[in-house]
């Protein structure tokens, strides 16, 4: 088992395997997105309260889920890199950050676009939007630290530790924000919370969520491959590979 892990986690081996894996993620992503969008935009009925505006949900909710998921992946792989000194895990963490930040940004903006017709204003200090904003700051902090330290190994480890500290803090931050928000409610009534969701709305939501998930896996492979090439640029196997291109 351990031997297998070490073999797979060697950058060279990963580079070869990942090339074959990418289409297995990319093609289902595209298919799921097409079906999900069709279901979400044409099949799902309008909401009895929110009319057609709720269709923003099909991009907003998956983006919000992914923003959190990617942060956790980042912290876990940073932890693996820190504890077992696996370079590949560090590269996965580094490559995840910009993807996660972009999904966080998407969740924030779509949340505020959804909020406009619901609340009458683009920004309300709603618990979820606030948490999402703080998550974006956490991503920025990680990326800033990563780029501020010159030595690559040190940068990986230091920012990795920050990601772990962040992931320990996320539940505390989230629950304190939710608690804070319930205190100050009254100004706004959020219509997001609903007891149940119609099956015709749930199916496209899950399809889109799965599509975003697979999309992340495809992109993380591409980005990690770039990191591998760049960091191993002076190794013979990279040189030979590039010469063949």
């Amino acid at each position: 088992m351990w031997h297998w892990i070490q073999r797979f986690s060697s950058p060279k081996h990963f580079y070869v395997i990942s090339a074959k894996l990418i289409p297995w993620f990319a093609v289902p992503t595209a298919l799921l997105m097409i079906v999900g969008l069709y279901q979400g935009l044409f099949v799902a009925p309008p909401d009895y309260q929110q009319g057609e505006s709720y269709r923003i949900m099909f991009v907003h909710v998956p983006a919000a889920w992914m923003s959190l998921f990617i942060y956790v992946v980042m912290a876990v792989s940073a932890g693996i890199g820190l504890i077992w000194q696996i370079k590949l895990a560090d590269m996965v963490a580094v490559a995840s950050a910009p993807i996660g930040a972009s999904f966080t940004f998407l969740a924030l903006v779509t949340g505020s676009l959804w909020g406009k017709p619901m609340w009458g204003t683009y920004w309300v200090w709603d618990a979820r939007l606030t948490s999402e904003l703080i998550l974006l700051f956490l991503y920025f902090g990680y990326m800033a630290l990563q780029s501020a330290i010159e030595d690559q190994r040190t940068a990986d480890k230091a920012s990795g530790l920050l990601a772990i500290v962040g992931v320990v803090n996320i539940p505390i931050i989230h629950y304190s924000v939710v608690w804070w928000n319930t205190l100050h409610q009254g100004a706004t009534v959020t219509k997001f919370a609903k007891p149940s969701i119609d099956i015709h709305m749930l199916i496209p939501l899950l399809l889109m969520a799965l599509a975003f998930q697979l999309f992340y896996f495809a992109v993380i492979l591409v980005r990690t491959r770039n990191e591998v090439l760049y960091r191993e640029r002076n190794r013979r196997w990279v040189r030979e590979l590039i010469e063949q291109l």
């Binding site: 703080i134 700051f137 956490l138 920025f140 902090g141 990680y142 800033a144 630290l145 501020a148 330290i149 040190t154 230091a158 530790l161 920050l162 500290v165 962040g166 803090n169 505390i172 931050i173 304190s176 924000v177 608690w179 804070w180």
Partner: peptide, 27 residues
């Protein structure tokens, strides 16, 4: 300790520390 070796790490320090301070501030 994460930024100790970074030159002019002041702004960076606030960027990484302030989000973590939020629960304390709230309560």
């Amino acid at each position: 300790s994460l930024t100790v070796a970074v030159n002019r790490g002041g702004v960076l320090l606030s960027l990484i520390v302030l989000p973590l301070y939020i629960p304390i501030l709230i309560f």
